[in-house]
Amino acid sequence: MDCVDLTTVLAGITLRNPVVTCSGTYGFGEEYADYCPLEALGGITLKGITPLPRLGNSVPRLAETPAGLLNSVGLENPGLEDFLVSYLPKVRKMPTAVIANISGFSLEDYVQMARALQVDSGLAALEVNISCPNVKHGGMHFGTDPHSAEEVIAAVKAVTNLPTIAKLSPNVTDIVEMARAAQRGGADALSLINTLLGMRIDIEQQRPLLANTFGGLSGPAIRPVAVRMVWQVAEAVDLPIIGMGGITTWQDAVEFLLAGATAISIGTGNFVNPQAPLEIIQGIKGYCEKHGLTSVRNLVGLAHKG
């Protein structure tokens, strides 16, 4: 077989392949242009924005762990207004599906941003970050309380005509409950998972290594947790899932697709290998060929059926 259909449909948008990049790891889409042509990707997710500019947390913001990375960037971003003026015009011209990511500290914050971002802005979808672990009094609060999660997704849906993706936090007792809440709020898709809250201590200084004490853990270390959550949510909720968490190889990506993800997203893996998305696209194609699948869509959730 020499032809595998890699296109996939997610929340009503058609992606040329199921490989996208994660918010916060791919800047505003230009930073990796020398390493990975945007036209090869299924899509990219932009750095999270908030209504007002944020300088983020102090350094050190990063700490390595075995097969992992803790970060506490703290949502540094130029703010909505500058995003609309300085970044959105470039986004319109990008030859791939571009997903904006919004974060807030109140319901009004999310509504304000969702109202400003519509289909005619050139974006493909809106990812609602209700799961940032690195800012106080916000972000993750909406992602750990089902009622708040439902409310914020419903409020966003009410004011934007873009497909809405809820990015869920793994720092909850029951991810399925959160996924159901997002679905009740009207989410068109789910992103699973954001980072796991963690910390490191510098044993010589006898102090936390990150200036912010805690950070979000990403990288291969969290992959089994992410696969498990994708699996659980896929069983319980009828919404397409973008699977993410520690994907660095095509084998990792296939695992997520088999667990029930419609698309997969690469984050920290880009730092290790900026061409990982390209290699993963090729690897998924090769895997489909080897297993006699004519479409990557046939892979989704396959492990549930055996």
């Binding site: 800047g27 350094v59 880009n270």
Partner: peptide, 16 residues
């Protein structure tokens, strides 16, 4: 010098 993540300006790990 700062701890770096992506080294290309995408992750905002190494700000000054």
């Amino acid at each position: 010098e700062e701890r770096m993540g992506c080294a290309v300006g995408a992750c905002l790990g190494c700000v000054c």
